[in-house]
């Protein structure tokens, strides 16, 4: 228990930032929809990590409550996202997200 508490907040937040940036760059760079979704998951978990760390730092339960929310959100997001992936692959026979540019109204 002590070992966990002894990790400084800054380290956790630094890890969170790195994870978030990895996710963000993944979204920007990757063209495969599956990987874009994975990157989104990484970003969300980065945010969740920051919540947990902050909650532990101030001894408040709010951080963990927010984590539960994010978990539920991620599950819902995956359901919708995968539905979109299926539709995309059916319609264009590819997973390249740039092919979806036809959606520009």
């Amino acid at each position: 228990m002590d070992a966990v508490l002894n990790i400084p907040l800054e380290h956790v937040l630094f890890l969170s930032i790195i994870l978030f940036l990895i996710g963000a760059f993944g979204i920007l760079i990757r063209r495969n929809v599956i990987f874009v979704l994975l990157s989104l998951e990484i970003m969300m978990n980065a945010a969740a990590l920051a919540f947990i760390a902050a909650g532990a730092r101030w001894g408040e339960p709010d951080g963990q409550v927010m984590f539960m929310f994010i978990l539920a959100l991620a599950a819902a997001e995956v359901a919708v996202g995968l539905g979109l992936v299926v539709q995309l692959s059916r319609r264009f026979q590819t997973l390249d997200i740039d092919r979806a540019e036809e959606l520009n109204g």
Binding site: L28, D98, N104, G105
Partner: peptide, 10 residues
């Protein structure tokens, strides 16, 4: 409004 999702994200 180009339709490029990655451009939107950027």
């Amino acid at each position: 409004q180009t339709g490029h999702i990655r451009w939107y994200a950027f």
